[in-house]
């Protein structure tokens, strides 16, 4: 089952009260700013700031950490491979050699570089929680409309978001009915053929349903505009928050350009 990102949208915190439009833009700027950094100290400072934002949003850290596990698994290979492989003229210190694969240590610089990659990936994902996880998804989608994203794209986000859960449910049901007929997933062609046909049938069913739903919505006056009871209103506090987060993003870039905080050559 897919767990929803907006599970903790009902809490009350300064981040929750922040106008979603300003919140999305400011935090997005911060994500880009952190990823653009090539300086371990500044990336660490950015990460600490992100942890503070998550703390302020009152989203439980256990929820965030659970999602971060996946990112960690994806970037871990980089952390393991980069410091310990030979490249070009820089062969590093050979540690061991087996079956033609040389295991060598390239020194603290390579470890720092790999750590920076992992920290950047984790920070940017962590910032998604205060950014998206603090308001209901329909309000977030309305905010995208408020930010003047192309209407077709906004509609696709809204519909796709709904269908993800429908399809997920349907797939679980299909799997159950396959299992009740004695089907087991194995690594062979038969499994692949059966799963393919089951998924194809899922499409046919969902497509027909999507068409019906869409025409029903049209006949009830749906015009493509996102309509919710929530109206956006950005007051002074919203702008203060935005200036604080956006300003921090700019500050990181200024610090990086001034060359402060560099520990060792280029990193």
């Amino acid at each position: 089952m897919i767990s929803e990102i907006d599970r903790y949208a009902g809490l009350s915190s300064p981040i929750h009260r922040w106008d979603p439009r300003l919140r999305i833009v400011s935090i997005l700027a911060l994500i880009f700013s952190v990823v653009l950094l090539y300086n371990l100290t500044l990336v660490t400072i950015g990460m600490i700031f992100s942890i503070i934002l998550v703390y302020l949003s009152k989203i439980p850290f256990s929820f965030v950490l659970d999602r971060l596990k996946l990112v960690f698994v994806l970037v871990l290979p980089f952390f393991l491979i980069i410091p310990f492989t030979t490249m070009g003229t820089d062969t590093g210190v050979e540690i061991a050699r087996f079956y033609g694969i040389t295991l060598s240590y390239r020194g603290i610089e390579a470890v720092g570089f790999a750590a920076m990659i992992v920290l950047k990936a984790l920070t940017s994902v962590m910032l998604i929680f205060p950014m998206i996880g603090t308001s209901r998804m329909d309000i977030t989608i309305k905010a995208l409309e408020g930010l003047h994203l192309p209407n077709k794209l906004v509609q696709m986000f809204a519909f796709t978001y709904r269908y993800i859960f429908v399809l997920d449910d349907e797939f679980v049901r299909t799997e159950r009915s396959l299992a009740s007929r004695g089907f087991k997933r194995r690594g062979d062609l038969y499994t692949l053929t059966t799963v393919s046909k089951a998924i194809a049938m899922l499409f046919v069913k969902s497509y027909e349903r999507a068409d019906r739903v869409f025409y029903a919505m049209r006949s009830k006056g749906y015009s493509g505009k996102v309509v919710t009871l929530h109206e956006f209103d950005s007051g002074r506090q919203d702008w203060i928050n935005a200036i604080a987060v956006f300003g921090f993003a700019v500050l990181l870039q200024v610090a990086a350009m001034s060359g402060a905080f560099s520990i060792y050559g280029g990193i």
Binding site: I2, K152, Q155, M156, F159, T160, R162, Y163, I164, V166, L167, D168, F171, R185, G187, T191, V195, I199, L202, F203, S206, Y207, A210, D211, V213, F214
Partner: peptide, 21 residues
């Protein structure tokens, strides 16, 4: 929009189905 969204959702869900091969 409906056809596109269904297939987009399918691409999303299908990428979550892992199997041992």
């Amino acid at each position: 929009v409906p056809k596109l969204s269904v297939i987009t959702a399918a691409v999303f869900v299908a990428s979550l189905i892992h199997f041992q091969f």
